[in-house]
């Protein structure tokens, strides 16, 4: 009796392996969480020191329009207004998303609804190729093709938000397209069949049924594209002009949070105000990444509730 009981109480080798697997998985997850938290802590603590150690006002930092970290204004306050970069980042992100969305959705519709064979044979490899191109190549093409093109049409230097928008539009196109394809594919087949059975044309089915049903997924794709655009550094830095001034139009040099970071980080000494304000810009980028993440989840939840 006792022997049988002890046999039942003993952990089987399979259970031991399972337990070991669980432990390893937990350690890996804990390690990832620890890394993420460490990065968050490091960036935020450095970013906050602009306000705690250097005494810069948060309002002046977020809404000031003069960016000269090495200099002080008439009131003795450092000239570290990040508004030009914040606006630059938002304009570039929103405009590139506005441009990319119709193209991406149109491409996705073609690949899923109109010609899946051609989509798989031609468009899919092209999109995968676009994803694989490094951002420095996009930037270089932007510098040698887009900037002179903008200059020849509008005058000016050719550098600016419009050039950055065009480069980013091409960069986020594959991201948004591939996610839009997944969103359209996830629409149940019987939705389409029901629409067609009720006498709907092919286009009515696509426009009024498939796209409506896929809207949360499509919006998620757009938000992902925006997140990619917001965080892009090198390609933007090469074509935007990097002038830290509030953008008044799309064809004069401007700057983004990432372009100023890449330009300046190597030229500052750790612990100085000039260095701390760059960490503050990085903190804004981090907060925005978090915002895009939350927005994606919220859209997903809304879609699920429907």
């Amino acid at each position: 009796m006792e022997e049988t009981q002890s046999k039942f109480m003993q952990k089987s080798s399979k259970r031991k392996i399972e337990q070991f697997g669980r432990t390893i998985s937990f350690i890996c997850i804990a390690f990832i969480v620890l890394i993420v938290l460490s990065i968050l802590y490091f960036v935020i603590s450095k970013g906050v020191s602009t306000f705690t150690t250097d005494g810069v006002s948060v309002i002046d930092f977020l809404f000031g329009d003069i960016w000269r970290p090495g200099e002080v204004g008439e009131n003795g306050e450092p000239l570290v207004g990040a508004l030009p970069m914040i606006l630059g980042s938002f304009f570039v992100t929103l405009l590139s998303a506005l441009l990319a969305t119709p193209f991406s959705i149109a491409a996705a519709i073609y690949m899923v609804e109109i010609s899946p064979k051609a989509g798989k044979k031609i468009l899919q490899p092209v999109i995968e190729l676009l994803v694989g191109i490094p951002s420095v190549v996009y930037g270089f093409i932007g510098l040698t093709v887009v900037v002179p093109f903008i200059r020849s049409i509008f005058g000016g230097t050719g550098f600016g938000i419009l050039s950055a928008t065009i480069v980013l539009f091409v960069m986020i196109l594959p991201t948004v397209t591939s996610m839009a394809v997944d969103a359209l594919k996830s629409v149940p087949r019987h939705y389409r069949e029901a629409s067609l059975a009720m006498g709907g044309t092919r286009w009515q089915t696509i426009y009024k049924v498939v796209l409506r049903a896929a809207t949360p997924g499509l919006l998620t794709a757009v938000v992902f594209g925006m997140a990619r655009a917001f965080g892009e550094a090198l390609a933007v830095q090469m074509v935007i002009g990097n002038a830290a001034m509030v953008p008044t139009d799309l064809i004069t040099p401007a700057s983004t949070l990432t372009s100023i970071l890449t330009m300046s980080m190597g030229n500052t000494v750790m612990g100085t105000l000039e260095n701390n304000v760059l960490w503050s810009l990085a903190t804004i980028l981090l907060v925005m990444a978090l915002f895009f993440n939350i927005l994606t989840r919220w859209i997903g939840k809304k879609g699920a509730m429907k």
Binding site: G70, E71, T157, N242, A243, P253, M263
Partner: peptide, 14 residues
């Protein structure tokens, strides 16, 4: 103090 009065709209190359 030093003040760099470079035109704010200048294109910056690194």
């Amino acid at each position: 103090t030093e003040s760099d009065n470079t035109y704010a709209g200048a294109t910056i190359q690194n």
